[in-house]
Computed example of a mutant assay.
Amino acid sequence: MNAATPAVHQAAALLLGYPGPDWPARHTLVRDCLTELAAPAATPLLRFCAAVDGVPVLDLASAYVRTFDRSRRRTLHLTYYTDGDTRRRGSTLAALKAHYRAHGWAPPEDELPDHLPLMLEFAARCPAPGHRLLRDHRAGLELLRMALTDHGGPYADILRAVCDTLPGPSPADRAAALALARGGPPTETVGLAPFAASDPAATPLARGNGR
């Protein structure tokens, strides 16, 4: 793990938070810290910062909702990519909460523990176990990265930066990412169906405010 990795994870966590009233200050803080970091891993994040610079907060908030809240293919809740809407997901979420507590971190109760900004913040605060956790959820991260790339807009750069912090190459295509995601899902999985059906190839900084 590169020495800059925790800073990249914290910056990504802040940039993936809902752009509320605190967004201009949050954006400036992250951009300035990444500029000082001067690490290649920060390049995609700085590209995102430049793309949204000057965009009114209300416009950015509307784009955020369109991007992440209106398609299961682009959800920020990573266990959905492997567990779908199944009973297994409940136990996975409980295990995530226990994992955070075991390392002395208590995430807010008003957000599910698989929400990517929370997982990234944990990785920034507890680098070794947090990095392992992101590796465990690589399939979801890569599927989200690909979906955001297809969707267009600047958010794909944030996922690109996160995936670049993980060891080894990214899956070559969505079919490979889906195969990775299906490494152990339950038989009743419904969450993966939209991916397969819609894809012919598959055939530390201050924490940002949430919504």
Score class of each variant (00 low, 15 high):
Ser71Pro: 14
Ala206Pro: 14
Arg174Trp: 01
Asp173Gly: 11
Ala177Phe: 00
Leu166Asn: 08
Cys49Lys: 08
Asp83Trp: 02
Tyr100Thr: 15
His103Gly: 13
Pro113Phe: 00
Asp199Phe: 05
Leu46His: 06
Glu121Asn: 00
Cys49Thr: 00
Asp136Ile: 02
Pro186Gln: 06
Trp105Ser: 13
Gly54Pro: 09
Arg66Lys: 12
Ala176Met: 09
Tyr80Asp: 11
Leu58Val: 11
Arg70Leu: 10
Phe195Asn: 04
Arg125Gln: 14
Thr149Gln: 15
Leu34Pro: 05
Asp22Asn: 09
Gly168Ile: 01
Gln10Thr: 14
Pro154Thr: 00
Ala196Met: 15
Met119Pro: 04
Asp32Asn: 13
Leu118Trp: 00
Ala176Thr: 12
Leu34Thr: 01
Ala202Pro: 15
Arg73Thr: 07
Leu78Gly: 14
Asp59Pro: 03
His27Arg: 11
Ala11Asp: 08
Asp150Gly: 09
Pro21Phe: 05
Glu111Trp: 00
Ala193Phe: 15
Leu112Val: 10
Gly84Met: 07
Ala196Arg: 13
Ala147Lys: 08
Arg87Tyr: 03
Asp110Asn: 11
Lys97Met: 13
Arg47His: 10
Thr75Cys: 08
Val8Leu: 09
Ala124Leu: 03
Ile158Ser: 05
Asp110Cys: 02
Val162Asp: 09
Pro21Arg: 09
Asp157Ser: 03
Cys126Pro: 01
Asp173Ser: 14
Ala51Thr: 09
Arg145Thr: 06
Asp85Asn: 09
Arg138His: 06
Ser91Met: 10
